[in-house]
Design a protein around this nucleic acid. Structure first.
Lengths: 146, 146
DNA sequence: TTGCATGCAAAGTTTTTGCATGCAG
DNA sequence: CTGCATGCAAAAACTTTGCATGCAA
């Protein structure tokens, strides 16, 4: 529908940006990735990071995770998967889950939309934070019995 | 786990903000709501809108929709439902869908998170934009036959 | 009276853009 | 060569914060 064909050039910056993103499994945001790239290319600018990330997202090479209004995070794992964010420490983990295609069909029929994609986000307390909170409660129970 | 108890005061601004949001079915962002409230309270400030919306979100009275990195949109319909965003015009519609609680349990077991909530977002082309695009294609077929 | 909520202005945060220059094709 | 990509700085877009004052309880 929209003409996406655009010649793109292979640049050192672009190359290193995708390399560093691929090496990173923590879904970095633009600034975090910038710090990593800067170690190899000290003069790189943050806008180059943004411009390259945007290009890669448009090409479908990487995923942009816009969760919660916090800075967008990027993910070079493009096999279908979802994400869970810790409501305590903000960490994002991958979730593998069978994609439910039937839902898309149901909604196309019911609402008249032509479905493009869907996404599922989960929020929870990660194992590490859960343990910490348990420890705290135990301590409380010891020092402040009912 | 976190102490959320806080006395809040009933103010004219807060009252009108929730009233106007409830009257609005288009999931307005803070600025749009600000314009509506300003018609009744010309001296209201945008930060009051933000502060009240944040309070209402924390109290669970309204929903904050953070989709796509665009400005956050707010929704006073708190019965469980999802959203679909038109990739063409940006409109957001409600989606009623049976909540799949089983998924939460599966993920708790598999990933060790304590589940808090989940959300599903859909992207598609809304009926109106779909029609427009069809019309365009028909015109093209007339004027530029293969 | 007390201190939470407001209006205003300023600042913060994240992302985008304009422009001269650099470099890939 | 040509013009897309870059670095830098500035601006834009959205949201939060500091502070003096207002007003609900």
């Amino acid at each position: 529908m929209i003409n996406n064909i655009k010649k793109t050039r292979k640049t050192t910056q672009g190359q290193i940006i995708i390399e560093e993103l691929t090496k990173t499994y923590t879904h970095p945001d633009a600034t975090e990735l910038y710090e990593k790239v800067k170690k190899r290319l000290p003069k790189v600018s943050l806008s180059t990071i943004y411009r390259n990330l945007e290009k890669l997202v448009n090409e479908g090479v990487i995923l942009k995770l816009d969760i919660d209004g916090s800075p967008a995070r990027y993910d070079s794992h493009t096999h279908p998967h979802y994400h869970i964010k810790c409501t305590n420490c903000g960490k994002i983990d991958d979730i593998s889950l069978k994609q439910n295609i039937a839902v898309d069909k149901i909604i196309e029929k019911k609402y008249g939309y032509k479905m493009v994609k869907h996404n599922v986000e989960f929020w929870g307390i990660c194992p590490k934070c859960k343990d910490k909170s348990n420890d705290l409660q135990k301590t409380k129970q010891k020092t402040e019995p009912h």
